[in-house]
Computed example of a mutant assay.
Amino acid sequence: MNKFSFSHGSMEVKHIDIVKNRTEQLNASFKAIAEARTILSRLEAMTGEIAEGKGADISAIAASTSGLRNCTDRILAGMVEAQTIPGVYLVPASEG
């Protein structure tokens, strides 16, 4: 069986570590997507209640939208980090 690794300077990242990182990060994104769906369902119900003329719990709306923003951040971070190599940070080449 072949062993894959990525070398960056004096650091070596093994293929299995890259796969584990990708899996963990994507799992975090999937969890955040599921949580966002739950929050959106709750907000949809609240919107329906407002449309029916019922009072709205502004603090619950604020907490839900804040939670949705948190989910969005976790989805983005997970998807970006799933495409990076753990411990390797790309630094732009200096001009000139």
Rank of each mutant, 00 (worst) to 15 (best):
G53D: 14
A63I: 08
A63T: 12
K14Y: 01
D73N: 14
S66T: 12
S29H: 06
I50Y: 06
F30N: 14
P86N: 01
K31T: 13
V88Q: 03
A28G: 11
E52D: 14
K20E: 07
D17I: 02
S59N: 12
T47N: 15
V19E: 15
E12S: 04
D17C: 01
K54W: 02
E24F: 06
A77M: 09
G67N: 13
A34F: 12
N2A: 03
M11G: 00
K31W: 03
I50F: 13
E12V: 05
I39H: 10
A56V: 08
K20G: 02
A82M: 04
D73I: 14
I16N: 06
N27Y: 10
H15R: 02
L90T: 00
M46V: 08
N2T: 02
K31A: 15
R69Q: 13
I58C: 10
M46I: 15
S29G: 09
G48V: 01
G78W: 11
L90G: 00
K20V: 02
E81Y: 09
Q25T: 03
A93F: 00
A62T: 10
A45L: 11
T72N: 13
P86A: 00
A51H: 02
E44V: 01
L26Q: 06
S64V: 11
M79C: 09
A51M: 04
E44L: 03
E24G: 07
I61F: 09
K54I: 02
F6K: 00
M11V: 05
Q83I: 00
Y89M: 13
K3A: 02
P86E: 03
N21G: 05
K3E: 02
C71R: 05
I75K: 11
N21W: 07
S29I: 04
F4M: 05
A45N: 11
L26R: 04
C71E: 08
F6E: 01
I50M: 14
I85F: 02
I18H: 11
L90V: 03
A28Q: 06
L76S: 14
E35C: 14
S7N: 05
I50A: 15
Q83E: 11
K31E: 14
